[in-house]
Design a protein around this nucleic acid. Sequence first.
DNA 1: ACAAAAGTGTTTTTCTTACACCCATGT
DNA 2: ACATGGGTGTAAGAAAAACACTTTTGT
Lengths: 257, 257
Amino acid sequence: MNARVPEGNALAPEGYDPHAFTPFAVTVDLAVFTVRSSALQVLLVERGQEPYAGRWALPGGFVLPRESAERAARRELAEETGLSDVSGLHLEQLRTYSEPDRDPRMRVVSVAFAALGPDLPEARGGGDAARAEWRPYGSFGALAFDHDSILADAHDRIGAKLEYSCLATSFCPPEFTLGELQQVYETVWGTALDRPNFRRKVLATPGFVEPTGGAARLTGGRGKPAALYRAGKATALHPPLLRPGGPRGSQPEGRTS
Amino acid sequence: MNARVPEGNALAPEGYDPHAFTPFAVTVDLAVFTVRSSALQVLLVERGQEPYAGRWALPGGFVLPRESAERAARRELAEETGLSDVSGLHLEQLRTYSEPDRDPRMRVVSVAFAALGPDLPEARGGGDAARAEWRPYGSFGALAFDHDSILADAHDRIGAKLEYSCLATSFCPPEFTLGELQQVYETVWGTALDRPNFRRKVLATPGFVEPTGGAARLTGGRGKPAALYRAGKATALHPPLLRPGGPRGSQPEGRTS
DNA sequence: ACAAAAGTGTTTTTCTTACACCCATGT
DNA sequence: ACATGGGTGTAAGAAAAACACTTTTGT
């Protein structure tokens, strides 16, 4: 990370030696997930210009001169979702996509983020995007650029992190029921979980959730009112809450257990 | 990741609208680990110029115009270690560091990688670095730039991935004994493991290791010759091999179990 | 009364842990 | 003979999985 910067470049101060060094455009791309009506939804924007005009893409934008990628991501998130208190949302760096031709126009390196939030309001297509919309994960065709890979990577990562972190509470409002929390797991993983066991597991992990103490709330009109919880201070989950059958698509063979 | 590129910039083709967009320098930084003589070692280079002249730093360098960050990382890895068959080493993107002032000279965004390899040869200080050396993890003072954070993040990540992936075999030569594999875990985690249990766990995971069939080998001069194994095709580890006590420093409180 | 959702209890099975013991080799 | 590292066995404990059952609400 040192040495070799060309002379005569706007970026390069004195004292660098004159080797190859290309300036890149740096952007952020966001895979924003929410759980709405028992479905995993993703925030997409419709592109206005070429290339990929009319195609859906992940929201994102350029990193500004004095911004970190994290700050840029949070700013873009606020702009695209129309939310003011983006501070509560979980934002996590995924990885950086830097294939030379990932953008046909120029050399763009993109730092991808995954963001999670509770049932978020309708997107209002802020900024440049022609339209912004929540779409159920898997219900749409190919996205622009390499956004299909980014989105798939984000989904994998979220699914994996649910196992060994307390991330799931980021999908829930400040106060939530254990049923809602369980639905987050079931929705992201696409599998049903045993309620009694899930409950025990969550409650047995200190700092995962803490009882709100307050009154119970009705969940879906019918049934017994559920107790309310809020997120605890823990971030890691030990021992982990493993999904049945392990991560999708990385198994060598059998092993049903 | 779309729209808003300024006019009059060398990078920008026609058809972009004239908003803010700064060119950034993009580099890769490598945290290269190996296990040598029962210690976790890191490859460091000594800086020749200011800033941080004379200080140790992680190897790295600029991403070339037609290179992805992954390719750049592998190229730098080959240059700095002096290895020719870098293709076998595990290389994994960690995350991107983009704080505006992480490099005092200019705006540099760095994509960090973690690399693992079996007992690697002496580094030969290739490229620009004044010197390159293997140093035991934790045996050196503050590194240049934000490389302390990068290295710490890399170590955390490696430790965590040993739990639920077959990554550990990347620290071993093509053929290795279970004792060597166990030492990888013990060295990275800094804890002792029960040999019989470790053995059972590894062998019970299909695709983790497969017997070489060939003859046994002496490990350290003394003791019974150990059977040889090679890495299997599996990448994930289900159920995981949890380290005793959970990840360092992320526990909310007790929970000895 | 019944459906729906929350919550409790119990049994079975599986995995982990701890530790005792034998094996093969070099000194 | 004994130290050293490899390999096997086994029994106690903890955790996960499966499932039966009670509670509280709305219709």
